[in-house]
């Protein structure tokens, strides 16, 4: 029998907004990796002494670095929000409603962010 096989385009993710959002969510991982590189550059500069740290600060103010970090921040936030939204569907705790799992994640996020900011800015 000659059934017709419906073709799948390599650009299937452009067909629907929800698919595009999925691909963007997956691409956020690239910016997570960029953050690791950026963090290690910072740590290395701090370890190299005050001069190197000043240089790093100056470099981080360059146009392209700023733009990259701005884009990366947007993607990292997309990652965080989508990650927390999906977490209650994987982590099912007996007798705890899903919304409570979600709230717990946001609470942990707020707490840790405040903690990190306090340690850095102290």
């Amino acid at each position: 029998m000659s059934a017709y096989r419906q073709p799948v385009s390599a650009f299937w993710w452009l067909r629907q907004w929800s698919y595009l959002l999925f691909v963007l969510r997956e691409l956020s991982s690239v910016f997570v990796a960029w953050f690791v590189v950026y963090l290690l550059l910072l740590v290395a500069a701090v370890g190299d002494g005050a001069r190197a740290y000043e240089d790093f600060l100056a470099w981080s103010g360059h146009g392209w670095v700023l733009v990259l970090n701005l884009v990366a921040t947007a993607f990292v936030l997309l990652h965080a929000v989508t990650w927390f939204a999906l977490a209650p569907r994987a982590i099912v705790v007996p007798r705890v409603p899903p919304w409570a799992v979600l709230v717990a994640h946001y609470a942990a996020w707020a707490l840790l962010s405040a903690g990190v900011a306090w340690v850095v800015l102290r």
Binding site: S18, Y19, F22, E26, L86, R89, A90, V92
Partner: peptide, 23 residues
């Protein structure tokens, strides 16, 4: 499964297969 989540959107019976898989 990469948790696209579209199966759960499409399901007319509220099965949430994406959640089932993740779990």
């Amino acid at each position: 499964c990469t948790f696209v989540g579209e199966c759960s959107t499409a399901c007319p019976k509220g099965v949430d297969p994406a959640g089932a898989i993740q779990r």
